[in-house]
Write a protein that binds this DNA or RNA. Structure first.
Length: 346
RNA sequence: GCGGGCGUCGCCAAGUGGUUAAGGCAGCGGCUUGUGGCGCCGCCAUUCGGGGGUUCGAAUCCCCUCGCUCGCC
């Protein structure tokens, strides 16, 4: 794959106040939705009843569902975890829910996205090598069960490499997952609180270990420098909450920087946020207006900044794709690797 | 005019003689990486309406003064 792709996240069948049509206008090609959240509400039965997730949420482009493995560990109140699966209490109504590889596959098949993700165990960042090794073994055995129970031929299944910050475990996990002959491979267990240098080391190590002909998906990563670094290491696909979460919190990505639109310096700034950007926020509104909307806690401000930030990341991935096609990726984007401030050349 | 009450950060508000004057809101800035529009973290009164006393020590006690407020004329 030579076209890096960024996926905005549509947890609940919307991207936080943005319609599918608006999302399409940003240039985003693929959307990630969430098995965990959709299972809790409204439930995969309702989605299946609607004719699948595409029709339910009004998005007819490519769609990927995360398996819920990460959310169970990061959001859930876990009661029990063993080789069989995970039992946790629903934060919504307190009922006990059991998620196993088979169950995660059944739910994702009901949801009907184009890509389903394997059910994995994502250990939290400060974890011992023994703990991470156990999570890897479990993730690998769960992957076999996911493959065995995933029977929907019109849906791809991606495996997930774990291994934390331990090179030996990463190498072993990459070998095991690559051997399964799946249509795509993801690297998980990054951006879970580890230092950025640790993530960079993992990317440099694991990227080259993955089969070149199959898409590499780096889960949860969406800062510009890290996407560029990952693309340099062969990754193609990213998802991240950052553009929309930053937008909701009043921040905009402009020229490789992060601006807090709440800041008083924008109060009298009547020029466009980013004159080079084609998004609705930049085309039709000023920094002062966006500042006002954010200060007034107006939802429109959050939506406009989210649209802008998604557009920004999509433009960035497209610029990288063009650079790869034209054979000048290293000159244009390698500066990111060294954290160079000169990177805004696209 | 007489009598009572009150004046502590832009706003609300603790504190009623003892180390560097709580807290909330607002303000100023920061954080957010396989999504709860959640949340978290810094910074924000050398000074208590003003002036003068008493005291080792005063936002706290006394005197004068200014302002607001309630009641009575």
């Amino acid at each position: 794959m030579e076209t890096p792709c960024f996926m905005p996240v549509g947890t609940l069948g919307t991207v936080k106040g943005i319609t599918a049509a608006q999302l399409g206008d940003t240039g985003a090609r693929m959307v990630l939705a969430n098995t965990y959240h959709l299972h809790l509400q409204p439930g995969e039965g309702i989605v299946a009843e609607a004719g699948g997730l595409h029709r339910f949420m009004g998005w007819d482009g490519p769609l990927l569902t995360d398996s819920g493995g990460y959310q169970v560990f990061s959001l859930g109140d876990i009661n029990r975890i063993n080789d069989e699966g995970v039992t946790f209490r629903s934060p919504r109504d307190g009922r006990r829910i059991e998620l196993t590889p088979e169950r995660a596959m059944a739910i994702q098949m009901d949801l009907g996205a184009d890509v389903a993700m394997a059910f994995d165990q994502c250990p939290p960042h400060p974890a011992s090598e023994a703990e991470v090794a156990a999570a890897c073994r479990r993730t690998h055995s769960w992957l076999e069960r996911c493959i065995a129970s995933h029977t929907r031929p019109d849906q791809a299944l991606f495996g997930i490499v774990q291994g934390g910050c331990f090179p030996g475990l990463r190498a072993e996990s990459a070998r095991v997952v690559a051997s399964m002959d799946l249509p795509g491979i993801a690297v998980g267990g990054v951006s879970v609180g580890e230092p950025v240098e640790a993530m960079h080391r993992i990317l440099r190590q694991v990227g080259p270990l993955l089969p070149e002909e199959r898409p590499h998906y780096l889960m949860g990563v969406g800062s510009l420098p890290e996407m560029a670094l990952a693309v340099a290491q062969g990754f193609d696909l990213f998802d991240c909450v950052l553009p929309t979460r930053l937008g909701r919190h009043g921040a905009a990505l402009v020229g490789g920087e992060r601006w807090n639109l709440r800041n008083a310096r924008f109060r009298h700034d009547h020029q466009p946020l980013d004159a080079s950007c084609p998004c609705p926020a930049c085309r039709q509104h000023s920094r002062a207006y966006l500042h006002h909307l954010i200060r007034a806690e107006e939802m429109l401000g959050k939506v406009l900044l989210s649209l802008h930030n998604i557009t920004h990341l999509v433009r960035f991935t497209r610029a990288m794709a063009r650079a790869i096609r034209e054979g000048c990726f290293a000159e244009g984007f390698a500066p990111w690797e060294a954290q160079s401030p000169a990177a805004h050349t696209w």
